[in-house]
Amino acid sequence: MTSTVLLALDTSTEYCSVALLRAEAPSDASQQAQARLWARHELTGAVSSTRVLPAVRELFDEAGMALAQCNAVAFGAGPGSFTGLRTATGVAQGLAFGLSVPVVPISTLLVCAESARRRDASITRVVAALDARMGEVYWADYAWDAGIGEWQTLTPPSLGAPEELVAPEVPFTLAGNAAHAFGARLGLVERAAVVDGDALPDAQPLAFAALRAYRAGRTVAAEHAAPEYVRDKVAQTTAERLAERAARGGPEA
């Protein structure tokens, strides 16, 4: 068997999430693919940048492997926290440069879909929706293609008001935290067959999605790795903050 060692990083949320995946590719059709995963997923708030590299070292030590054995570095490219996305991008680039390996950018919304499916293999259609703040939602629509064993993007990562999201005409799982954040304002909640609020950006499902991308050649050179912000605006005006609080039923001041 041929081994692939892949490091996955996600700091798009308040968590610092790091996973190390060692996967064996079967040498013939009679063998089953094997994989081992080591991970850290820690609530760090705004200081994920201070925890990423120590967590990487811990995982390689725990796995009994050297950093030089790494074949690729994957990261949650966004959307998500602007600061967090820059952290993951910078660390992935730095490690990839030093190791002379490619980078695998993976959408955090696709990671939500992957997370939902890894808990329920019967899932074939996922709308991933994350709270984007400012009264908006990051979202995308994915379908699992069993023939090739990969997600197909039907609606690419987008930004919109909760009421604007379009529900598929077929049964689907709603993944991500938008249902919890917006409640009835998110019309997709009533249309969804399943609401999986625990399917969130995490380095573990990211690693498995990135492994497929790596093996399919969907990688970039370190210097070309970049965040997928989706939104250009990073701050609200006072009026916008007050309007969002009112919409959520909170105090106006």
Rank of each mutant, 00 (worst) to 15 (best):
A33T: 05
L165C: 02
A29C: 06
E114N: 10
W151H: 03
L95T: 07
A77E: 10
G160T: 05
D28S: 02
D61K: 14
C112K: 11
R86M: 07
V126E: 04
C112Q: 13
D141I: 09
C112R: 10
Q32I: 08
S115A: 12
A132G: 00
L159K: 07
R119T: 04
W151D: 02
T219R: 14
P201L: 11
A128W: 02
E228T: 15
Q69L: 02
N71I: 06
A140P: 00
I123N: 01
T2A: 14
D232I: 12
I123E: 03
T173D: 06
A239P: 06
V166S: 11
G90I: 02
S12Y: 08
A140C: 03
H180E: 15
G76Y: 07
P79E: 08
E169M: 04
G250P: 00
P79T: 10
L43F: 13
L59M: 02
A77T: 05
A161K: 11
A116L: 03
A72I: 08
A207N: 05
V5N: 00
L67E: 12
W144H: 09
W144Y: 13
A207F: 07
A23K: 05
L165F: 03
H41M: 00
A184R: 12
Y138D: 01
S122D: 13
A207L: 08
Q31N: 06
L53P: 00
L20E: 00
A88M: 05
